[in-house]
Amino acid sequence: MSSDHPRDDIIDTTAPQTKTREDRMSEVDSRFNSTLREAFGSTPFVLTKFDAFMDWVRGSSMFMLQFGIACCSIEMMHTYAVKHDLDRFGSGVPRASPRQADVMIVPGTIVSKFAPRMKRVYDQMPEPKFVVNMGSCSTSGGPFQQGYNVVKGAEEVIPVDIHIPGCPPRPEALVYGIAKLQERVKNGETSPVTVKPYELEQFGDLEKDELVEKLADDIDEETLVMRYNWADSP
């Protein structure tokens, strides 16, 4: 069989394939008739807006940050692993570096020492980025809310798109939360930007109160600090 005339060899004719087009253009199925359709013939094509296309792409291939904090991270590992296999939904590639990640799942309790570091990891992720709160601790402090050292939810520090309740949430719940996030991303929905109560700021910029005066000898003016106002926390 010669490859010089493949079509000839297969269907014994060199006439152009117009049957499908003719069917579409006929009376039976005329819904999609257009000059574009006529020009493209039977070649499949899609018309869309570039933004919508990009949203679809983003939602369909999300890279997760490999980010374990506490108990929930064990369930998160199970969600990535066999049986639940988050990758089935196009969002299960854990990346160790924040610079390669789109989504940060916050799986655990945020305490005072860790919040600035988490903020920095979040800052290192490229835009657009999304955050999923996994479990009660990262939603509100959970069972440790009354603790002297516990930040009452990741949302005090970074913006959050999806909250998943549970202690810890089952893998199914996490999958559902991720699917919801994908849905939002695909629809181009964004969370409103709000001012966070806890921000990294230079020590010199803090209001000079009793505590700042006391620490003035220990901390440089330029050092970044996070100030916790526990009394105002929810």
Binding site: S112, K113, A115, P116, R117, R120, Y148, N149, L200, F203, L206, L211, V212, K214, L215, D218, I219, T223, L224, V225, M226, R227, Y228, N229, W230, A231
Partner: peptide, 22 residues
Amino acid sequence: TWQGHPLGRDYNQDKPQIVEFE
């Protein structure tokens, strides 16, 4: 940079705290 000893008897949990991020 923590102020006070939280499991001591007269620790006030509502006092603000400053944490360094060097």
